[in-house]
Simulated assay, not measured.
Amino acid sequence: MSQPARALPDLATTDPVTLTRVLCDIASVSGEERAIADAVEHALRAMPHLEVLRDGDAVLARTNRARASRVVIAGHLDTVPVQGNLPTQLRTDEVDGEVLWGRGTVDMKGGVAVALHLAAAVADPAVDVTYAFYDHEEVEAAKNGLGRIARNHPAWLAADFAILGEPTSGHVEGGCNGTMRLDVRTPGCTAHSARAWRGHNAIHDLAPVLTALAAHTSETVTVDGLDYREGLNAVGVRGGIAGNMIPDDAVVTVNYRFAPSRDAAQAEAYVREVLADALAALPDATVTVTDVAEGARPGLDHPVAAAFVAAATAATGAQINPKYGWTDVARFSALGVPAVNFGPGDPSLAHADDERVPTAQIAAVADALRAWLAP
């Protein structure tokens, strides 16, 4: 293929911090990943030990050494919109030392840079590795490049274990919680508020549902040795027509963050159980699941995963934590591949205008993965 408009430096000899900065300075807001995908593809095709595949603006590369195990190391190429925080800047912080500022430094071009560097520098890894760099992660799930790869090229994601380079401050976050949203709708009857007795107030009927949610204590569920804190909350209430009318319709949106030990059907059954008494008092109420994404078990008992955890903790002193938010590790779980999140950057700074990462975290994550992959 021809030279891309913005070529990457040599992946094997360029340190991951410098590579992070180069990647961040190639703007790649979701839907505009073509330039960075071209640069990544061009750089990977220069590596004779890698087989490379391009699908849209996703690029995959893999070793084929006939190892006993295969792992996937993945990361998305896109970012949320730039808010005056490019080009990147290197600054010195009294606490963190050298810090790289700019869009994508945390979410998640630090993780992508580490993976690209290792793809080139570790030509003969102890396990076969598939590297997946994909598009459209920061937008609606239907456009997600990893999901498209799973549909178009499922064999490329077949593995014993997967690592997603999402920001974790250099710790290992196993699996992820699932998430479900449900609408509880109550019907009423419209009337003038001056003659309220002629109607039936649908908003008032939400009271037992809200009371049940407020009284509920969420569980902590242990899965593969990690404690996943669940959450069941009202996250939205809507209803009403005008300031002088009794509402004839009201909805409370409920969000359930559930441990990866439950599937979608079990999660819905649990919410209905919590709300059972409230719904019994509201025979005309309806419950509708509007969105659901199942979680992912970490699978840390798998020998390949255990070896990775040992290498990460030895190299960086990484803690092993559960992932409470949903990430694309769940897509691997749906394919039967246990997965963890492991990458540089504080996740609370993802998407922030002051997005920044200590360069020592990028180096530490690279060291941990290199120690694991090196034969």
Rank of each mutant, 00 (worst) to 15 (best):
R21A: 14
R103Q: 12
V340D: 03
D249W: 12
D353C: 01
L50E: 12
L213S: 01
V329I: 04
A214H: 14
G317R: 11
A276S: 15
F332C: 07
G31F: 07
A281G: 07
A265S: 13
V139S: 10
R54D: 02
A281Y: 02
D224V: 11
P303F: 04
H200P: 00
Y324C: 03
I362A: 05
H171A: 07
P125E: 11
T313W: 05
V292M: 04
A207M: 13
P375Y: 02
A330P: 02
T179N: 12
L164C: 10
M1I: 01
T92S: 14
L282N: 07
R54Y: 03
T290Y: 07
E219D: 15
H216K: 12
V235N: 08
G56Y: 08
D124H: 13
V127I: 14
D15I: 02
L118Q: 00
D96P: 00
L19D: 03
H204P: 13
H49K: 00
D160C: 06
A259W: 05
L226T: 06
Q266V: 00
L226H: 06
I246D: 05
A368H: 09
V29Y: 05
L77D: 04
F133Y: 13
V235G: 11
I362L: 04
A158V: 10
A366C: 12
I73H: 05
A121K: 13
T222F: 03
G188C: 02
L100C: 12
A259I: 09
T220Y: 11
E268C: 10
S169L: 04
E230L: 02
V99E: 09
P154E: 05
G111H: 07
H153L: 11
H351E: 04
A306H: 01
L86A: 06
N321H: 15
G243P: 01
G111R: 14
A250Y: 14
L275R: 03
A202D: 12
Y134E: 00
